[in-house]
Amino acid sequence: MKSILLHLMMLLPVLGFAQVGIGTTDPTAMLDVNGNFRLRSTTSNTRATAAKDSILVVDALGNAQRISSKSVIESHLKTFIKGGFASGSPALINISILANAYTTIPFNTIEFDTNSEYNTTTNTFTAKQPGIYSIYAAIKANPGLLAAGDFGLAVFKNGVLNVRESYMNVQLLGININPPNRSIQTLMQLNTGDTVTFRGYSGGVLTVGILSGGEESYFTIHQVR
């Protein structure tokens, strides 16, 4: 008994002022275990809120850390977004496009966004996790404001043109005979932090009036895998 007490008295100062290693002579944490460990029993907890602190994870270096269950679940939620124009927007939103240039379509409202990835101020989607995404956008222009020339939609990834659908406006006796709807759809592989924006394109100087009704002008982004 005296021997056990003596060893504990010798160990207490080490525990209080140094790092302790089990299976290693070079500990890098307060308690550094080089090997497996086992919990023979745990205390039951009936508090539902305790779940947010109950997940123990181990990083690539073997460091044990705590992470909330909410953040783990959200990190695996697939992206589902639908947006368009705010209900308070003018019925007709005019955007000016220079010749052979691109102008951001200012979608400024969200109907739903499961991972909070779309910024309505910058009109930009930023992926929170890697995957394959299905991307779609549609707008309806005011036929009275369209001029003859190339006009369509484009999707940019990280500020670089990724895909474009353009349509030549055709006039007959000064009357536009092509439909005012424009749409684009594509699959895109994104990594964490990649951005997506929707832009209008024109082969000439053009002012386009976009009808802001949600049933006519909107976009969707959803993660397919």
Results as ranks from 00 to 15, higher is better:
S3Q: 02
I4G: 11
H7T: 05
L8E: 03
L8S: 04
M10T: 08
P13H: 15
V14D: 12
G16T: 08
A18P: 01
Q19V: 03
Q19E: 03
V20D: 01
I22T: 11
G23T: 12
G23I: 13
D26A: 10
D26Q: 14
D26C: 08
T28Y: 13
L31K: 10
L31G: 06
V33G: 07
G35C: 13
R38G: 00
S41R: 11
S41A: 14
T42K: 02
T43M: 09
N45W: 00
R47Y: 11
A51R: 12
A51V: 13
L56D: 04
V57T: 11
L61E: 12
G62I: 09
Q65K: 15
R66P: 00
S68D: 05
S68I: 04
V72K: 06
I73Q: 11
I73G: 05
I73P: 00
S75G: 12
H76R: 13
K78C: 08
T79I: 10
I81R: 02
G84I: 09
G84E: 07
F85W: 02
F85P: 00
F85I: 03
A86Y: 05
S89Y: 05
S89G: 14
I95N: 10
I95S: 11
I95C: 10
I97R: 04
L98V: 06
A99Q: 15
A99H: 11
Y102K: 00
P106A: 05
I110G: 03
T114F: 06
N115W: 01
S116R: 11
E117C: 08
E117W: 06
N119S: 15
N119R: 13
N119I: 14
T120S: 10
T121M: 14
T121L: 13
T126A: 09
A127F: 01
P130L: 11
S134L: 09
I135L: 04
Y136H: 13
A137Q: 07
I139L: 05
K140T: 12
A141Y: 00
A141F: 03
N142M: 10
L145D: 02
A147K: 07
A147R: 04
A148K: 07
D150F: 07
D150T: 09
F151T: 03
F151M: 00
F156Y: 02
K157W: 06
K157Q: 05
K157P: 02
V163F: 06
R164A: 00
R164I: 08
S166C: 07
Y167M: 10
Y167H: 07
Y167N: 01
M168L: 15
Q171D: 07
I175V: 14
I175A: 08
I177H: 04
N178W: 03
P179M: 06
N181Q: 11
R182A: 02
S183I: 01
I184F: 15
Q185N: 15
T186R: 09
L187K: 12
M188P: 01
M188T: 01
Q189D: 04
Q189I: 04
L190D: 05
N191F: 03
D194E: 13
F198C: 02
F198P: 02
S202N: 08
G203M: 10
V205S: 14
L206V: 03
V208N: 00
I210Q: 02
S212V: 06
G213Q: 12
G214P: 10
G214D: 14
E215A: 08
Y218M: 07
F219C: 03
Q223C: 04
V224H: 02
R225S: 15
